[in-house]
Simulated scan of single mutants.
Amino acid sequence: MLVLIGVLLVVIGFALRLNPLVVVTVAGIITGFLGKLSPVEILNAFGNGFATSRSVTLFILVLPVIGLIERFGLQEQGRRLISRLAALTTGRLLLLYQLIRQVSSALGLATINGPAALVRPLIYPMAEGAAERRFGRALPEAMREKVKAYSASADTVGQFFGEDIFVAIGSILLITGFVDTTYHLKLDALNVALWAIPTAICAYAIHGTRLFLLDRRLDRMAKEAGLITRPPEPEAQEAGR
Rank of each mutant, 00 (worst) to 15 (best):
T182D: 01
V179G: 04
V147M: 05
H184V: 00
S153W: 02
L187I: 06
M126F: 10
F166M: 07
L174S: 09
A205T: 02
V147D: 08
F160C: 15
P140N: 03
A142E: 15
A138W: 00
F135N: 11
T199H: 00
M143W: 05
P121V: 12
L194I: 09
I165Q: 13
E163V: 15
G177M: 07
K146C: 07
L185C: 03
T181A: 15
A200R: 03
G170I: 01
P125H: 02
F178W: 10
L122C: 06
V147K: 04
A142K: 12
V179M: 13
V179T: 13
G170R: 05
V192E: 01
R133V: 03
F178G: 05
A200D: 03
F161P: 07
I169H: 14
L194E: 00
R134G: 04
M143G: 05
A196F: 01
A138R: 14
L190E: 05
I172D: 01
T156Y: 11
W195Y: 15
Y183W: 11
S171L: 12
W195I: 14
T176E: 05
P198S: 10
P198Y: 05
G177A: 10
L122F: 01
T176V: 14
F166S: 08
R134N: 09
E128W: 11
T181I: 15
E163R: 11
I201M: 12
P198H: 05
A142D: 15
A142W: 00
L122V: 00
G162F: 02
A152M: 13
I123D: 08
R134D: 06
V179K: 02
L194Q: 02
G177S: 12
I197R: 03
I172R: 02
A142S: 14
R133H: 10
A203C: 00
V167F: 12
G177H: 07
L173W: 09
S171K: 09
A142H: 14
S151R: 08
Y204C: 04
F166H: 12
I165Y: 07
A127T: 10
G177T: 08
A200G: 07
L139I: 11
R137L: 04
D155W: 11
